[in-house]
């Protein structure tokens, strides 16, 4: 094994008509590293991945997989990538085993090796008992696991997971996160996109914060949090005209950032104890009713808010 990156993406660019979906995205992933691409819906994560996987023609930039250029036409580098699409990509009318067998054949796995790999993956995703049941009958979590398993069949050097926990119950979600951790400790490089800050914090060696098609910042959790500086975060859950509350809060001295989404206002302040009472009063004055308040130390979400000016929530 050499030290060269498993993936090197340079200046990736993609437009859909007038929409500049990905703008000069560059990052690399080293062997054994888990890279988290963290950003809200529509940030350009899936589009970036589609270019990395050679699915989508790009308007600019370069992708190297272990030094080999990847385009929509090259076949060889694809063998090194296991791509797990964001939406379930399985045949519901085939059994789990048939799904795995079919996709394994596309990677030129055959004979005894085919049987072994399918059995191994079934074990890894915990579906050995249900191997011969139709995938359509599976629970959501089982389908997700099968979806991921297909990406593991050919023992890729780089596993790309596009928001694998969206719409999954907490138990399955945890199982998925654990298996990603296990794969990573086996030395496989992982590109993991998510809009859940906690997942990026838990899994990723390095995180790239992506918004509006651009990587705004990149680094380890510690590095990113340091960019934000020593700030406290106040989260206020409330009902009412949160946007106007945010506007008022932004005008307060000592408030560095303010944002709202999903009934929650997030504030970055220098000193929470000093500002808390006044902030709450400001929110209440707009007619909103506050249901809970929390004060936290800086984390990735704070970094995200600082970098993009928005809260990172669904």
């Amino acid at each position: 094994m050499t030290d060269r990156p498993v993936l090197e993406a340079t200046d990736l660019d993609k437009r859909f008509g007038d929409l500049h979906a990905v703008r000069g995205v560059s990052f690399h992933i080293d062997p054994g590293e888990t890279y988290g691409l963290l950003g809200p819906n529509g940030a350009g994560k899936t589009t970036t991945i589609a270019m990395v996987g050679g699915l989508l023609e790009r308007d600019g930039g370069q992708v190297l997989i272990e030094g080999e250029p990847m385009t929509v036409r090259t076949l060889d580098p694809r063998r090194k990538i296991g791509l797990v699409p964001q939406d379930l990509a399985i045949y519901p009318d085939l059994t789990a085993r048939e799904n795995l067998t079919f996709f394994a054949r596309l990677y030129e796995i055959s004979g005894q090796q085919l049987k072994d790999r399918v059995a191994k993956v079934l074990e890894v995703i915990g579906l050995t008992d249900r191997a011969d049941d139709r995938a359509g009958e599976f629970s959501g979590g089982m389908k997700r696991r099968l979806n991921i398993g297909i990406g593991l069949l050919h023992q890729p050097r780089l596993l790309i997971l596009d928001e694998p926990t969206v719409g999954v119950d907490p138990q399955s979600r945890n199982a998925i996160l654990e298996s990603v951790e296990a794969l990573s400790s086996d030395g496989i490089a992982v590109l993991y996109t998510t809009h859940y800050m906690e997942e990026a914090e838990r899994l990723a060696t390095r995180v790239g914060i992506i918004d509006q098609g651009e990587i705004k910042a990149e680094g380890t959790r510690r590095q990113l949090v340091q960019m934000v500086g020593e700030r406290d975060r106040i989260s206020i859950t409330a009902n009412g005209p949160l946007e106007s509350a945010v506007t008022d809060l932004r005008g307060m001295s000592g408030v560095e950032e303010a944002g709202a989404s999903d009934g929650q206002i997030t504030l970055l302040v220098r000193d929470a104890s000093e500002l808390l009472a006044k902030a709450l009063e400001t929110v209440t004055n707009t007619g909103a009713s506050v249901s809970s308040v929390a004060v936290e130390e800086p984390d990735l979400e704070a970094a995200f808010l600082h970098l993009t000016g928005k809260a990172l929530r669904d």
Partner: peptide
């Protein structure tokens, strides 16, 4: 529609 096309395109096949 069902997303499996993405997988076919991602595979090392023409």
């Amino acid at each position: 529609r069902d997303g499996t096309m993405t997988r076919l395109i991602a595979a090392p096949i023409r």
